[in-house]
Design a protein around this nucleic acid. Structure first.
Length: 270
DNA sequence: CTCCAGGTGGCGC
DNA sequence: GCGCCACATGGA
């Protein structure tokens, strides 16, 4: 029986489809399926968010168990603990950004698992989103337990040809080297969320194949560093529509994601 | 066939 | 510091 949560100022479809996560798929019945440690099912109808997962212990009956404890992991993952209106109020007052926010109102920046996020974005360079999804799915199917994203040590122990078979191309060596360094404890992903942003960025940039863009994606989409501001080809286009030198404030990453998704949906490319 | 994709590192200048 | 370019792979 799914847990039901009242989720105001939330847009599940935009949040899961805006390009920050690569493992969610929408079924014909409106349920989204993904893996967050275990399998999750999510569906939104108006302000009602339904959540089910494969491992959660039984919760009373008739789906009435909507206490804070039952959904705390969900609230954290979806950043439902943020006040969206307050975040948007910190954005620069600019027509193009306003339009993006209005169009996709309720989009929230996720807090995903850092290793999966870093690995996914290492795989992302000069790839289309549909291809990135395929690569991540290949990695999970080939190396993961129960189709979960493979652990750091699993990738660290994998051979380069095995990784190549997942269609990583020239990125395979970067992913492998990153896994090995993280597995050895040279880079501690678990410490990134509590680090100051600039320091966390520096830490990720130590990894070969991780530049400014991939590092910022990791910090924004998995570490709660809301000021992280990834700039890719789509963002370069979007930024041309704004006055030069526009600054975005402490939630720059959220503004970035609205602009990014607006840019992509406006040109209706996939 | 050519061009491009949620980039990055190495090179020459 | 800048501007090119290679890097694998598949879709348009």
């Amino acid at each position: 029986m799914p847990t039901r949560i009242n989720a105001a100022d939330f847009n599940l479809a935009a949040t899961l489809e805006c390009g920050q996560a690569f493992r969610w798929s929408r079924g014909a019945d409106g349920w989204y399926t993904g893996i967050v440690g275990e399998v999750w099912w999510l569906r939104q109808t108006g302000d009602i968010l339904e959540w089910d997962c494969s491992r959660e212990p039984a919760r009373g009956r008739e789906g009435t168990a909507t206490g804070p404890r039952a959904g705390s992991r969900l609230q954290h993952y979806l950043s439902l603990d943020h006040d969206l209106s307050a975040i948007v109020a910190t954005f620069p007052d600019e027509p193009h950004l306003r339009a993006a926010v209005q169009k996709h109102w309720g989009l929230r920046v996720l807090r995903q698992e850092p290793w999966e996020t870093l690995a996914s974005f290492i795989a992302s360079s000069t790839k289309q989103i549909v291809q990135i999804r395929q690569i991540v799915a290949n990695l999970a199917r080939r190396f993961g337990e129960n189709d979960a994203f493979p652990a750091v040590e699993t990738i660290a122990r994998a051979s380069l040809p095995e990784l190549q078979a997942c269609k990583l191309g020239f990125r395979a060596k970067y992913l492998h080297a990153a896994a090995r360094r993280i597995d050895r404890g040279e880079i501690r992903l678990a410490e990134l969320p509590a680090m100051e942003y600039g320091r966390a960025l520096e830490e990720l940039l130590k990894l070969d194949g991780v530049g400014d863009k991939i590092a910022n994606c990791t910090l924004l989409f998995s570490c709660g560093h809301d000021e992280a501001f990834p700039v890719d080809v789509w963002m370069k286009r979007a930024l041309k529509r704004l006055p030069a030198g526009t600054t975005f404030g402490p939630y720059a990453g959220w503004a970035q994601q609205y602009l990014f998704y607006h840019e992509r949906t406006a040109t209706e490319l996939n």
